[in-house]
């Protein structure tokens, strides 16, 4: 464990992933549209984009309602991020809510979901609808852009690796706890508790960063959510583990009791985390009916960066555990010598 290469690897991965995560531009997107409700007839809407270049290219603006497209009759571009569009809304659109779709060369098709309310529902419009617009290519390596996430999508590469690292360290602790029961060596017990300590550092970081992110996107520091409940239970379990250790003075007994509790708790925690998403709703992507990040990320630009960040942070976590463990070992040897 004192070899250097994997530490350098971990640092390089975290560095590369962090720089990419902070430097990669966001895809242009429509973030806001005012106007409506759109009753049949003439209606205008003002549209705000983020990182868009409306001035540079011809922009086409559409409404989509139940698969039917309505193109704007006139579009006035104010600047790169602001435009107003006027629609002749036909009679008989199918759905309550219409999406706004803006197509521009180099931007791809930018969509704002459920942008306008359509008060008079029908069975489908006959006149005034057009074909689906060509999607168009999106230029360059960009991150996906969602109207509540904006730049915070970059947090994916900082917040989520904390949880992966925590899980890895807890798995390490679990393995050492099994070894404690087999061998009864105090060294394995030291390793188990230091892995738990390190995992709690990452759990706390994950909780705080998640809380900040949640406040900025879901406007609550804490929401009732499957992933959050899982995280809370995990932290409680390992705090209880430390309390248990604190309340036993006999070293051999402490090692065994702590190992038994750790094994029991770890397995139940895994089951809990696997079963939770089916039991509670979640705001997180990929669970509770929400699309996973990869699903609305068309060109998978997030994926390699994310995996690099996860691997790198796992390495850093292991390194932290390794340092704590080695120090604990020295402390313990010292104590033993003094007792002799």
């Amino acid at each position: 464990m004192r070899t250097l290469w994997w530490k350098i690897m971990a640092l390089a991965l975290v560095l590369a992933a962090s720089i990419t995560a902070l430097r990669t531009p966001l895809a242009p997107a429509i973030v806001y549209a005012s106007g409506g409700p759109f009753a049949p007839g003439g209606n205008s809407a003002s549209v705000i984009g983020y990182r868009t270049h409306f001035m540079a290219a011809p922009v086409r603006v559409f409404l989509e309602n139940g698969g039917q497209f309505v193109e704007a009759s006139s579009t006035v571009v104010a600047d790169d991020t602001h435009l107003t569009a006027r629609f002749e809304v036909p009679v008989g659109l199918r759905e309550d809510m219409s999406d706004l779709v803006v197509v521009a060369p180099g931007h791809g098709a930018m969509r704002l979901f459920a942008a306008f309310y359509n008060p008079e529902k029908g069975t489908g419009a006959v006149d005034g609808v057009t074909d689906a617009p060509q999607q168009g290519e999106r230029a360059g390596f960009v991150f996906p852009n969602r109207n509540i996430l904006y730049e915070t999508i970059r947090n994916l590469n900082f917040h989520v690796p904390m949880w992966f690292t925590m899980m890895l360290l807890q798995t390490i602790s679990f393995v050492f706890s099994i070894k404690v029961l087999g061998s009864g060596r105090w060294l394995d017990d030291r390793a188990a508790v230091q892995a738990v300590n390190a995992s709690l550092l990452f759990a706390i970081l994950g909780l705080i960063t998640g809380s900040i992110w949640a406040r900025a996107t879901w406007s609550g520091w804490w929401t009732s959510d499957a992933k959050l409940n899982g995280a809370a239970v995990t932290v409680l379990i390992y705090l209880a583990y430390l309390v248990l250790r604190g309340s036993v003075t006999d070293l051999a007994k402490r090692a065994r009791l702590a190992a038994i509790y750790n094994i029991f708790a770890y397995v139940l925690m895994l089951l809990f985390i696997m079963a939770l998403p089916r039991m509670t709703a979640s705001l997180h992507p990929g669970s509770g009916g929400n699309p996973a990040f990869s699903q609305y990320d068309l060109d998978d630009s997030l994926r390699p960066v994310f995996y690099a960040a996860v691997l790198g942070w796992m390495g850093i976590g292991t390194w932290i555990f390794n340092l704590q463990y080695r120090l604990a070992r020295i402390e313990n040897r010292h104590d033993e010598e003094r007792l002799r």
Binding site: V233, L236, I237, A240, V243, L244, S247, V248, K253, L257, Y261, F264, A265, L268, L271, F272, A275, L276
Partner: peptide
């Protein structure tokens, strides 16, 4: 019981585990 600590420790250890 083995830790020699009463119902207080049991509550602390038990709550997170009984949650699922």
């Amino acid at each position: 019981a083995r830790a020699g600590n009463g119902i207080g420790l049991m509550a602390i250890l038990g709550f997170p585990i009984v949650l699922p």
